[in-house]
Write a protein that binds this DNA or RNA. Structure first.
Lengths: 214, 214
DNA sequence: GTCTATATGTTGATAGAC
DNA sequence: GTCTATCAACATATAGAC
């Protein structure tokens, strides 16, 4: 199966890539249809409106992503049980699956993460879509963080999450600015290296503003 | 002076606000002209093309911003001389001026920071504009960081900067997602609180991945 | 500098043949 | 499901009167 993707799937794939690269308003239905090797009218037939196509793209992989991340968090807690896990392990469970996706061969998933980065920074879509699809898992993640950082006050926990989220999504966006800034010493294409640094960076940040662990 | 802003200035102000809110493609020259209470044709007369208007908006405050930040960094180093400053002081010099701007009454500057956030995450404009206008100062900042973190390897320094930049720009974007996520416990409108947390968070992160100070 | 009028192209969406 | 043909609305940009 999946030998020949259906036209509907090709539209989703093309839209995913182009929306990720240029944002909602930066893409026309004609560009999407062209990339998908499909007639423009088909986008309307399958998805009704451009707005609905965008939502469909966002929704498609959101549920899969939530599953992967929930499993990583489960595994992290099971490995430490009956004790609470280490802070680093919790952060790792949150970030590493995304690093694996970004480093994998699958282009579609890379485009999707780039799209999430765009949505997360968007004032128009960010609040609505991120809240609807990702808040439940994020809330669970923060609950786990709270058990690991018992002295943390409410505000610090959420600010810490915001900083982590910002660091993460800029890495998704992959503007290659770092490559030029560093003169080639550090490259945004070396995603595994990025996550190897991101996890201890974020963990240390949380520990600093949320009191020490255990 | 500055009693009545010129039409040209009003166009810049309106464009700044709308580009920050909706991105380059999400705004039309007509919307800009309407908000500026000006005829559409004036945008072409004063700025030629939409592309050039966008660049003009970005450029206008970039030089001012670089001055403010350079002064903060100078003051930080002068206060510690002849010794190198504390890591926290260097991070503070980098971040606090932006927090002050964000917390101030000036709407124009707030829009500008939001625009910078958008540009920083944009694959199309990010590399070009950020590199041109902000890389020189950022490079100087990283040089100072290197003296404070002598054991840091090249890569870690740039990844740390990338994480800080991501945390910062998401705070600029102000999607108000955190307000809902936290059920009101933490609000993205309380910018001073955000920077009070961001500075120790980032400093601890740098210390973790770049070796200890002095 | 500022406006009116207009040129020229593109947009998202639909109606209807196949 | 897929295509052709077409729509009205809107885009950026310019030419020329004032």
């Amino acid at each position: 199966m999946a030998e020949k993707p259906s036209r509907k799937t090709r539209i989703l794939d093309a839209a995913e890539q182009l929306f990720a690269e240029h944002g909602y308003d930066g893409v026309t239905l004609r560009q999407i249809a062209t990339l998908a090797h499909v007639d423009v009218a088909l986008t309307s037939y399958h998805f009704g409106s451009k707005d609905n196509l965008f939502r469909s793209v966002f929704e498609r992989r959101a549920v899969v992503l939530n599953d992967v991340r929930a499993q990583a968090l489960d595994a992290c807690m099971a490995a430490a049980a009956p004790h609470p896990p280490q802070l680093e392990a919790v952060i790792e469970a949150y970030l590493r699956p995304l690093g694996d996706i970004q480093g994998a061969a699958d282009e579609g998933w890379r485009h999707y993460l780039s799209l999430v980065a765009w949505v997360n920074s968007s004032t128009e879509w960010g609040n609505e879509l991120m809240t609807e699809y990702f808040n439940p898992f994020v809330q669970r993640f923060i609950e786990v963080l709270r058990t690991v950082l018992p002295d943390a006050d409410e505000q610090a926990l959420f600010w810490g999450y915001q900083f982590m989220s910002g660091a993460l999504t800029l890495t998704f966006a992959d503007t290659r600015r770092m490559d030029r800034l560093s003169g080639g010493a550090a490259s945004s294409t070396k995603t595994a290296t990025g996550y190897d640094h991101m996890i201890p960076f974020v963990a240390a940040g949380f520990r600093q503003i949320c009191g020490h662990t255990h």
